[in-house]
């Protein structure tokens, strides 16, 4: 892998975790019940922690190979990468940035995404001998819990009342089109991912939509209209008061 490829891998891992973590954090104080409010806020913090680790690794990579990365201001920190990049530079998948919607959309998004993260981190842990593999190994414990927590919610809502089944089915229709870009063509992870989704959907009495047109764009920086609003809120302080701390 070239230095540039390493950087784009790190940034995608970091951006995904940061953006979905930010979305989860929006539930803080608004959860349906105190216990679940704490649960989803914990998950948000796990994601932000993963993002920090990946951004730190990315910053180290850039600082140690300055000649390979013209166009960055050195020395660079994790904060520069999170707060001072523009929308088109973010490499997260679109599914991470979509609005939370209701509890069904929120938990289904976490389920679809953490299943992806689970198999991806497992692969990185086994095959990547760099910092990336080490971070993935540490984060895998958290992701395993996110997957357990979210799949139980998908089953609970899908196999629950008429209303909850209706809502989670709507969420499936809404989110499924954003799962295509998680994998490149022929990625062996896709098969594992799909099997896990199918087994949980079977228990939840949900069906996978067929012949869905898949959205693309996150990995090339072409984001949905929601992304700008997230960054506006997240980056405002560092943009308005550069370098401020608390």
């Amino acid at each position: 892998m070239t230095k540039a490829e390493q950087l784009s891998q790190l940034l995608q891992l970091a951006d995904n975790a940061l953006i979905i973590g930010h979305r989860c954090s929006e539930w803080c104080g608004h959860g349906p019940i105190l216990e679940q409010d704490i649960a989803i806020t914990n998950i948000a913090l796990d994601y932000i922690g993963q993002a920090r680790n990946f951004y730190q690794a990315a910053a180290t990579l850039i600082n140690e190979n300055q000649e390979s990365f013209p166009g960055f201001a050195f020395p660079l920190s994790e904060d520069n990468l999170a707060y001072l990049r523009d929308e088109r530079e973010f490499r997260n998948h679109l599914i991470a940035e979509l609005p939370n919607g209701d509890w069904a959309v929120t938990t289904l998004r976490i389920f679809l995404f953490s299943t992806y993260q689970y198999y991806l981190y497992t692969q990185l842990k086994d095959e990547d001998k760099t910092m990336v593999g080490a971070i993935a190994e540490k984060a895998l414990k958290e992701v395993t819990y996110h997957l357990k927590w979210s799949s139980e919610w998908v089953i609970r809502l899908g196999d629950g009342t008429e209303e909850s089944h209706h809502r989670i089915s709507k969420a499936v229709d809404q989110l499924w089109a954003y799962t295509g870009e998680l994998f490149t063509k022929g990625d062996p992870l896709q098969e594992q991912w799909l099997q896990k989704i199918q087994s949980v959907f079977a228990e939840a009495d949900l069906t996978i939509p067929e012949n869905t047109w898949m959205h693309q764009g996150g990995t090339t920086g072409n984001h949905t209209e929601h992304m700008g609003f997230i960054l506006a809120e997240m980056q405002f302080l560092q943009r308005a008061y550069p370098g401020s701390q608390w």
């Binding site: 105190l34 216990e35 679940q36 704490i38 649960a39 914990n42 357990k148 927590w149 139980e152």
Partner: peptide, 13 residues
């Protein structure tokens, strides 16, 4: 099952 998960999130963070 949910009680144990909630307890994990509320009391063992």
């Amino acid at each position: 099952a949910m009680a144990i998960e909630n307890a994990r999130d509320v009391y063992t963070r």
